[in-house]
Simulated assay, not measured.
Amino acid sequence: MKTRIVAPRIAALLLALAAPAWAQMTPVGRWHTIDDETKEVKSEVVITEKDGVLTGRIDKLLRKGADPNRRCTACEDDRKDQPFIGLEIIRGVRKVEGKEVWDGGTILDPEKGKIYSVRLTPVDGGSKLEVRGYFLFIGRTQTWVRVN
């Protein structure tokens, strides 16, 4: 009798513990961006999903001395002169079928106003996100860190 009660409880507990790990293998969430040169946290970006499409916005500027009123003066599209805080920097990204990779959209470098194709790949159990911005075959990869 005791086995019948304990086994389902153990299974439920294991499922509850594993569920957050499965949920983390997605770019959706809050991320700290890291400065390539100083290796310091630069900003916090929130990636959301609607109808299978990911978008990402700058939620906070975290670099020391960052101007909270800074605007995207280098941008050349609809984001021209928009505030950095709230700025949509990731657009149109979708999951690649059968893979833990999101691709097909764009990412904006708001400091330079440049737009690149982007690929997002969760790594280290979803605690980090490889963000690859590229043009044709040339690009660079940044690693963002999930905010708990």
Rank of each mutant, 00 (worst) to 15 (best):
P83N: 00
R30S: 05
G86W: 04
I115W: 15
V53E: 02
F84A: 02
G29F: 13
G56H: 00
I47D: 00
L87E: 04
P110Y: 05
D67H: 11
K99W: 02
P8L: 01
S117R: 14
A16Y: 09
P8N: 00
R70S: 13
E100Y: 10
L87Q: 03
F84V: 02
S117H: 11
G29P: 14
D59K: 12
L108P: 01
L17K: 10
V123G: 01
I85N: 08
V41Y: 05
L15K: 06
H32M: 07
A18M: 12
I90S: 13
V118Y: 02
Y116S: 00
K99D: 10
K128W: 08
R91I: 07
P8G: 02
V46I: 15
A23W: 08
A18T: 12
E37A: 07
A12W: 14
V28T: 05
L61W: 08
L13Q: 00
E111R: 14
D59E: 15
L15M: 08
D36Q: 12
T106A: 08
D59Q: 15
S43K: 10
R30Y: 07
E76G: 09
K80T: 10
S117V: 04
K128Y: 10
A21K: 11
I58P: 00
R119C: 03
R91T: 10
T38E: 05
Q24C: 00
K64T: 13
G92S: 11
R119V: 12
I115C: 12
A74M: 12
V6F: 12
P20C: 08
I10W: 11
I107Q: 06
E111M: 12
R63K: 13
V28P: 02
V118H: 03
T106R: 12
A11S: 12
G52Y: 09
L61R: 11
I10K: 12
I34S: 07
Y116C: 01
L13N: 00
L108T: 03
R70K: 15
R70V: 15
D103Q: 14
E97F: 01
K42P: 01
V96H: 00
I47H: 01
A74L: 10
Q82E: 12
R91Q: 15
V46F: 01
K80W: 09
